[in-house]
Write a protein that binds this DNA or RNA. Structure first.
Lengths: 208, 208
DNA sequence: CCCTGTGAATATTTTCACAGCT
DNA sequence: AGCTGTGAAAATATTCACAGGG
């Protein structure tokens, strides 16, 4: 298991290299990648060597082979079934996001408890209530749940999703969620991002 | 300047403690906070002591004073003027997000180049084109820009925003943005989040 | 000669462990 | 007795620097 920071960097390397491939490049060096990302070449080499891939000394990495390895390690060769839990503005924005489908994430289930939304369709998928969520998730073999419900509803829907067998979650609700050992939950917290900016703004002001 | 990881934790401590305050608590210990966040008490104490605040040995921290210090260090006592650049689904979701205003972030400028949107109002603010963006930003004394334009437009609007004096940006476009020394840009990258989940899903599958 | 792969060195972050105040 | 504040230790992460293959 690679560490979190390494995986995040590998994902970005993969993007950059795919960009180069699209431009017709065949080889890339650690220095090229590093420059595109404001990292050190040494770190790029360390990260790539953790994949086991061997570059050619004096030349660099073969782009095609490197992308193969990256896609394979990162799990981007298969499609992944996703459930969207919470069909508000944010949820709808995510589903409509072009990178979503392109990278192999297929939304197969949309859940919302607003009676006005239940039964309507979003991007061709019918909105269902959270009644029997665990079963719905299991039946559709959902692998990833994206949580965009209000904070107070989040723990409950996560519990149901986990009961339905989901082990990978992306949570947008600004609240700490407890999951059993072995379940992976990532947080995207917009207020937290904004507050980070407020901190550095404030720091700047105080130390002017 | 506190390090990034410490600031992120302090922001969360602040939330947890405000919650406790709302429940009528007057004192909190490092262990209480740690438990709510799955961190170690030792780390909580280190983080809080980096604020300079002194707790009471044998008792813990006075919640009211601690919140004061946190709000003051984190810059949450003042309001911050925000520009939303890109008024698509995601941008509109952000502006409508309740935590946004509550935490003191006021949207004062909305930019979009879709002719259908220009002149219309979102949350009471008129949508303007990106023409003369630097001046618009400077005139309204915007401190923070939230970038939700498509990837290919992102670098350009960031350049204008920075030319207009903005030093704090939150970027949702899935592309590396170059900013001058001294400008702070944070990334929220939904595809990256999803790909992280794909990695651990894949890892799980391979090592079953 | 150029660039990788990697041991060793360095830097950073987290945790331990305990003295000391209330 | 209980919990903080903090040196010191441990664990992690990053960078240096160079041997060695193409």
């Amino acid at each position: 298991m690679l560490n979190k920071a390494t995986v995040e960097r590998l994902i970005i390397y993969n993007r950059v290299i795919k960009e180069l491939k699209a431009q017709g490049e065949k080889w890339v060096t650690s220095t090229d990648i590093a420059r595109a990302l404001s990292k050190t070449p040494s770190q790029v080499r360390r990260d790539i060597s953790s994949l086991g891939r061997k570059g050619k000394r004096g030349v660099g990495y073969n782009i095609k082979k490197l992308i193969n390895d990256l896609d394979s390690v990162l799990g981007l060769n298969d499609e992944h079934c996703v459930a969207l839990i919470g069909a508000g503005n944010l949820g709808r924005a995510l589903i409509g996001y072009p990178g979503f489908k392109r990278e192999g994430f297929i939304c197969r289930l949309i859940i919302d408890n607003d009676p006005e939304k239940i039964g309507s369709k979003i991007s061709g998928i019918k909105v269902e209530s959270s009644e029997g969520l665990a079963k719905k998730v299991a039946r559709k073999k959902i692998a990833i749940a994206v949580i965009t419900v209000p904070a107070e509803a989040a723990q409950k829907v996560v519990d149901s999703a986990v009961a339905g067998g989901i082990k990978e979650l992306l949570n947008f609700a600004p609240v700490k969620i407890y999951v059993p050992e072995g379940v992976n939950i990532r947080y995207v917290d917009l207020a937290l991002e904004m507050e980070n900016l407020a901190y550095s703004l404030n720091y700047r002001k105080k130390n002017k």
